[in-house]
C-alpha cells in the first residue's frame, strides 16, 4: 500500500468513528436527539436474529457449514457491539477529557520544569526532585493519595459548574490533577532531552545580541526544543490515553470503567474489553493523526525533521 492509500484508509476509519462518537455524545447530552439517550442508533435485534437464523440453518452440515458459521459469528459480534457501544461512549468521552486536559496542563508545567532542570541552579534540584519522585512512584499510588488522602474532591465540589454538565464527576478533576502532575514529569524529561540536543551556540548567540538568559531560553531555545519534542510528545499522548484507565480505580467512569461495569451485568468480560480496546485504538490513532498534523503545521526547514516521519539525508 502506498503512503497515501494507508492515510486514506486510516482517515476514513477515523471519520466513521468520530461521526458515530460525535452523534452519540450529542444525542446523549441533549436527551435523545436521534434516539432515546443511551439507546443504540439502530436496533441490534434483527442482526442478532439473523445470526441465530444462519447458525440454525447450517446446524449439522459439518465442514461445509463452517464459512456460514463464521458469518453468523460476525453478525453476532456486530449485534453485541451495537448493543454495548452506547455504554462505552460516555466512558470514552471521559477518557478524552482526561487525556487532553492532562497533556495540555502537563505541558504548561513541563516547560518551566525542563528549563529549570537544564539551566537552573537551586531550581535544578527542585525540578529534579519532583521529576524523580513522580516518575519513581506508581501512578495508581499517586491517584490514591490525591483522591483518598487529600480533600481535593471536596474542594472541587465547592467550585460552581465543576462536576456538572458534560463532565459529571468531581473525581474526573481529581484524576486530571493526578495525570497532569504525572505527565508533567515525563514531558519535562522529553523536553529536557530536546533542549540538550540544541546546539549551545544558539543560546550563546542569543546572549551575544543582549538577550537575557530567560529571553534566550524563551525566544530561541524553547521554540526549537518543543518542535524536536513533538514525536515524544505524541508518544506521551498515546500512553496517557491508555494509562487514563487507572482513573477507574478512583471511581471515574472512563472507558475501561464503563466496559467493566457493562461486563458485571452480563459476564462477557473478554468481549467487552475487546470492544473497549477497539475504541482505545480509534482514540490513539486520532491522537497520532492530530499530532502529525500539528507537526506539519509548525514545521520549519532544518528544525525537528521534515514532518513525514523519515530522516532527511542532510
Amino acid at each position: 500500500m502506498t503512503r497515501s492509500t494507508k492515510r486514506a484508509v486510516r482517515d476514513g476509519a477515523l471519520a466513521v468513528f468520530w461521526l458515530w462518537f460525535g452523534a452519540r455524545l450529542l444525542n446523549d447530552w441533549f436527551g435523545g436527539v436521534f434516539v432515546a439517550a443511551g439507546e443504540p442508533f439502530f436496533d441490534p435485534q434483527p442482526v442478532a436474529d439473523a445470526s441465530t437464523a444462519l447458525r440454525e440453518a447450517v446446524a449439522g452440515t459439518g465442514v461445509l457449514g463452517e464459512p456460514v458459521g463464521w458469518v453468523a459469528n460476525g453478525l453476532g459480534s456486530l449485534s453485541f457491539a451495537m448493543t454495548y457501544l452506547p455504554d462505552l461512549a460516555a466512558g470514552a468521552w471521559l477518557t478524552v477529557v482526561l487525556t487532553i486536559f492532562a497533556t495540555i496542563f502537563g505541558l504548561v508545567l513541563a516547560v518551566p520544569l525542563a528549563a529549570a532542570r537544564v539551566y537552573g541552579r537551586v531550581t535544578h534540584w527542585v525540578a529534579l526532585a519532583f521529576i524523580e519522585l513522580i516518575r519513581g512512584t506508581p501512578l495508581l499510588a499517586q491517584l490514591f493519595v490525591l483522591y483518598y488522602a487529600l480533600p481535593l474532591s471536596r474542594w472541587f465540589a465547592a467550585v460552581p459548574y465543576l462536576g456538572s454538565g458534560i463532565v459529571p464527576e468531581q473525581a474526573v478533576w481529581v484524576a486530571v490533577v493526578g495525570f497532569t502532575i504525572n505527565s508533567a514529569a515525563y514531558q519535562a524529561e522529553y523536553i529536557r532531552g530536546s533542549i540538550e540536543g540544541i546546539d549551545p551556540g544558539q543560546l550563546v548567540a542569543a546572549r551575544s545580541i543582549g538577550l537575557s538568559r530567560v529571553q534566550g531560553i524563551r525566544y530561541v531555545v524553547m521554540p526549537q526544543a518543543l518542535r524536536f519534542a513533538i514525536p515524544s510528545w505524541t508518544n506521551e499522548l498515546v500512553y496517557l490515553t491508555k494509562y487514563s484507565s487507572l482513573a477507574a480505580f478512583i471511581t471515574v467512569g472512563e472507558l475501561f470503567h464503563a466496559a467493566r461495569a457493562a461486563a458485571y451485568a452480563n459476564y462477557r468480560f473478554l468481549d467487552l474489553f475487546l470492544l473497549a480496546a477497539v475504541v482505545y485504538l480509534a482514540l490513539v490513532l486520532s491522537a497520532t493523526t492530530v499530532m502529525e498534523w500539528v507537526r506539519g503545521r509548525v514545521a520549519i526547514p532544518g528544525v525537528g525533521g521534515s514532518g513525514d516521519g523519515r530522516m532527511s539525508a542532510d
Partner: peptide
C-alpha cells in the same frame, strides 16, 4: 559578535533573526 559557525537562530527566517534583538532588546 559574529561566530565561526554562524549560530543563526534555526527556527527564524533571515529577517526574524535580525528583528529578534531589535524587538526584545
Amino acid at each position: 559578535m559574529v561566530f565561526q559557525d554562524f549560530n543563526l537562530f534555526a527556527h527564524l527566517t533571515a529577517l526574524e533573526n535580525v528583528t529578534l534583538g531589535l524587538k526584545r532588546v
